[in-house]
Simulated assay, not measured.
Amino acid sequence: MKKNHPYSRDLLYVHLNERDQYVLSHGIEFHEFARSLADSLNHLLLLKHRYEDGEFNRHTLFEYVPEDSVEKLVGANVHTGDFCWIDFEEVEALNVLSPQEIAELLYLGHIKHHLKLPFYNQLNNRFVYLSNEDGWFNKTYYRNFNDFFRMLGIVLSGKLGEMKPEKSLLGIRRKKAYPSVSKEILKSLIPALKEGAVFSLKNIQQNRNRIEVPIWIIGDFANMDDMHDEYKEASRNLPDGRLIFDKKLKEWSLLAQ
């Protein structure tokens, strides 16, 4: 995919497709996704990847990462090229996948789109994670969108902590911890996310009392270069809304324009 813009970790784009149960995103990396949903990940079947420490399944001819090795994968560099996987509960389930299902999984990894909604009874998967240059372009299917909103709330607060490290008494910069943005607040943004919206941590404003994260509604993009161009134009105008963090109450709220 084209990449005419420098990758910036302080710009987070989300486009929610409710009907087909997926989210297109820019700015959310695998390690952020996996750590925020660590209690929901089982074994991972690797559909397209460059990871060299997976185990091989003879029936599907796919490699997979057992649950107890996922943390090692999280620490690996998966940013180059395609990185695509689907989670599954039982290793034995791989051996009963039909030729049609294996073909659908190959198509998912190759085309990054489904032939039919990619939730399989045998695998009991909750996610399908399809990325190119992980963090630059991600398409993630969710069996339950509550997982998405939980992840997004944790990732937003984590990025804010990385952006605004505190200095200790010894002058050492350390990451500040913020509470995650609640699912209820993020769910109230569903109309904006269905259109395609950017959370810009590079444009945050703050004073002694609060931090404001601006949100612009910019539209539906699968090409993230085009998304960046549109964001550049939109950011010249006032944002469509703001996530507000009250420093005294230590609470998040949403301010719509």
Rank of each mutant, 00 (worst) to 15 (best):
Q21E: 05
L24C: 07
S25I: 01
S25Y: 02
E32I: 12
A34G: 04
S36G: 07
S36K: 12
L46G: 06
L47N: 09
H49Y: 03
Y51H: 09
D53Y: 03
H59M: 02
E67K: 15
D68P: 07
S69Y: 00
L73V: 07
A76E: 13
N77P: 05
N77S: 10
H79K: 13
T80L: 07
W85M: 10
E92P: 00
V96K: 13
A103S: 15
A103E: 15
Y107R: 06
I111K: 15
L115E: 09
K116N: 10
F127L: 09
F137G: 01
F137V: 00
F137N: 07
F137H: 13
Y142I: 11
N144K: 13
D147R: 12
F148T: 10
L156G: 00
E162I: 12
S168V: 03
L170P: 08
R173V: 08
K175E: 14
Y178L: 00
V181F: 01
V181I: 13
E184S: 13
L186G: 08
P191M: 05
K194S: 08
G196M: 11
G196Y: 11
A197R: 09
L201R: 13
R210K: 15
E212S: 14
P214C: 04
I217F: 08
D220V: 03
A222Q: 12
N223F: 01
N223E: 09
D226G: 01
M227F: 10
A234V: 08
S235D: 04
P239E: 05
K248Q: 12
L249Q: 14
L254Y: 04
L255N: 14
